[in-house]
Nucleic acid binder design. Structure first.
Lengths: 204, 204
DNA sequence: AGAGCCGCATGACAGATGTCATGAGCGGCG
DNA sequence: CGCCGCTCATGACATCTGTCATGCGGCTCT
């Protein structure tokens, strides 16, 4: 189509965001036309800018890049979505794909892949690390129910059962039951390990 | 001295590292002459390159940027040290300063501060976020003994007392005692919270 | 030399946590 | 409709965790 690819860049750490913008700025055919630091600013800003590609970090305040991707995919389906993340968690990849992402990159990957991914998604291709894709398929889907995930998330900061029960409007016994089933599903010994494993897998 | 400032860049995530290099490359007076992805490659690489400034991320495999800073400060005391980190933990700032760092930047800060910091440290100035400095002074020093820190670090992944005891060649009772004193010093309710707080403060 | 801190350990105890059996209500699916 | 899974709950039990008192040996500082 037009001469340059218009990109929206979403990443909460200013220094990283501007550095990525500088990197993309080196490419003649790519132009970063908007930058945001929060997930919940993605959609409003995208609406104002007629962009071709949105580059979304996952870990952001407001809402995650995956949630932002889902919103964009629904509201502006022609915009291509590149999800970028620090952590190559298979569960993240799965969620990103379900949210309509066209590419999934980890920040460990060489910088050259970034511009390349932008061009490829615009050409209709999908860009996914094959190793990660294999891992995502191998580990299967998230076995936790909504409640189990909720309780596990709430337990992540070291809260006691009584605090969890109060926060979630449940009885202590129920909290323990949910944690117990989560612990069994994740094949671990206690809640702390359960939180860690669920985090690593991107299930939390 | 010479025309351009020679910089060594240490950061484990390729994409971020190369993006930062691109950012610094936009400055006429700064040149990134070497890049490494691991803490333990910093010193050997610095020896080969006659650099003016080392830009060190804290979170790296091999060894942390703070340990690398200490090594550099000892071996090549004329090299100026800029420590860069995702997390503005007061304890990190303190450790970095003790390791001989000249500047401490968080990745949240505007990108312009990076080049600025490089120039300032070379001019003999120190660059520290005043808010962080205040926080570091306000919270005081790390109250944990070596053993307490060690046990807490080992407990971070959700290991049980028996596993900790085996891993650290201690009795279970001793492990519990250390955790207990750590929990009291940090004024929290259990090990999980203790780990979280110690992490946040940069004491872990 | 004595005081004091640290590392390490033990034993006893209360309270938190994890497991299990059991059951009620609700919704979906064949 | 019956079966199943999810949610929520209770009670009982075993184990784990956190606290406390106490003790010993080593080290440092005065």
């Amino acid at each position: 189509m037009s001469s340059t690819i218009k990109v929206l860049l979403a990443e909460d750490q200013s220094m990283v965001r501007e550095a990525l913008a500088a990197l993309l700025g080196l490419e003649d055919d790519i132009e970063v036309v908007a930058q945001v630091a929060r997930g919940d600013e993605v959609l409003p800003t995208a609406r104002q800018h007629d962009i071709d590609v949105a580059l979304l970090d996952i870990e952001m305040p407001g809402c995650t890049g995956i949630e932002a991707a889902a919103q964009l995919h629904k509201a502006l389906p022609t915009v291509k979505l590149v999800v970028l993340t620090t952590f190559g968690r298979p569960g993240y990849l799965r969620s990103a794909m379900e949210a309509g992402a066209d590419a999934f990159l980890v920040k460990d990957a060489p910088a050259a892949q970034l511009a390349e991914a932008v061009r490829k998604v615009l050409a209709g291709e999908r860009v996914i690390d094959p190793t990660l894709a294999a891992a995502a398929l191998a580990e299967g889907a998230n076995p936790l129910t909504d409640r189990e995930r909720e309780v596990l998330r709430a337990a992540a900061d070291g809260s006691t059962n009584a605090e969890l029960a109060a926060a979630l409007h449940l009885s202590q016994g129920t909290v323990r039951n949910y944690l117990s089933t989560a612990i069994q599903k994740l094949a671990v010994r206690n809640r702390a390990e359960a939180v860690r494993i669920a985090r690593e897998k991107g299930w939390l």
